[in-house]
Amino acid sequence: MTGQALYAVLGCGLFCLGFHALVVAAHPLRRLLAVNVMGSSVFLVLVAGAAPGDPLPQALVITGIVVAVAATALGLNLLLRLAVPAAADEPADGEGGS
């Protein structure tokens, strides 16, 4: 097995590990991290699975990383906003906004 194929196989394992954590973990922060692990694993498969030295998947991964950063930042801010209720919030009544 070449070194590059090994990375691709590792990526597959990481994807499943990340998915396992996503299903098992209860805390949203852990689940957000699990999704990030899955993301990195897909990027690994994308680059290591393609022909050696192919620049196209490398460029795709840069795009993917920026998307992942943006999504994580949004998720973390939602999480933070949920964890620290502001004074202006009314108590949760489950009625939903309208």
């Binding site: 691709a8 396992h20 299903v23 290591a48």
Partner: peptide, 17 residues
């Protein structure tokens, strides 16, 4: 779940090699 995901990992690893 662990068994299922191990199976998935094996299928994926087989596919990428």
């Amino acid at each position: 779940l662990a068994l299922l995901l191990a199976g998935l990992a094996a299928v994926l690893a087989w596919t990428v090699t």
